[in-house]
Simulated assay, not measured.
Amino acid sequence: MKTDDTYTAAEKDILHASLNRHRDAVLWKLEGLDDEQLRRPMTPSGTNLLGLVKHLASVEYGWFVSSFGGEIEPLWFDPYTDEDLSVGPGETTQQIIDFYGRARAASDAMITVRPLDTLGRPDWWDQTVSLRWVLVHMIEETARHAGHIDIMRELVDGTTGDHRRTTPPDTD
């Protein structure tokens, strides 16, 4: 049985660990694929693996950083349109993965320094939100898209699972 301190940690640590599990699964699902596979439209609307990662980076910046007064890096796309779900021909895989890494780091900085009851306001929405609410929302958002990514990865090359295996699965 796995032992993990987050099973009994403080609320913020548990929420942050949950978000990180889904974030890590998203990146793991990209491993070993080439550019064509990462960009291949997998739905009639054109959804692809790399586009979902770009979207997740964009919404992390919006919810965690913009909502709580942090500084967002200059974006090369309009986050209020479907441009955050698509990858243009001039955008590289590494650019998108690095963008997600920077968004995660900026979000983590906000999560680390602010209490769960901190209130913020997204600049695109006329509602006040707590950091707690945003953490739960982003766990949901990331898990939802990690599920999409899981299905798309299986369609690309048959790889399944929600995390990298460290031990062989039970054969019983």
Rank of each mutant, 00 (worst) to 15 (best):
W63A: 00
A10L: 15
S86V: 13
A109F: 04
V59Y: 06
Y100F: 15
L15V: 00
D5T: 10
W28P: 02
R132K: 15
K2V: 13
D126W: 04
S18F: 10
F68M: 05
S66G: 08
K2G: 01
L27C: 08
L155R: 15
H148I: 03
A143H: 00
D5G: 02
L116R: 10
E140C: 00
M138L: 15
D123R: 09
N48D: 12
Y61P: 03
Y100N: 04
I96T: 00
I14F: 14
A57P: 08
F99M: 14
M152R: 02
V65F: 02
R144V: 05
G161N: 05
S45H: 09
I14W: 12
T166V: 12
D117I: 03
L50R: 11
R144D: 01
Y61Q: 10
T8H: 13
F99P: 00
R144I: 08
F64T: 01
H148E: 05
D126L: 05
T8V: 15
G120F: 04
S67G: 15
Q127W: 09
E73S: 03
T142H: 05
W124H: 14
S58P: 02
D35L: 03
T171A: 11
I72H: 02
L52H: 05
S18Y: 10
V59P: 02
A105D: 14
R102Q: 13
T112A: 15
S66Q: 10
T166Y: 13
A103K: 00
G147W: 07
V26Q: 04
R121H: 10
T171G: 01
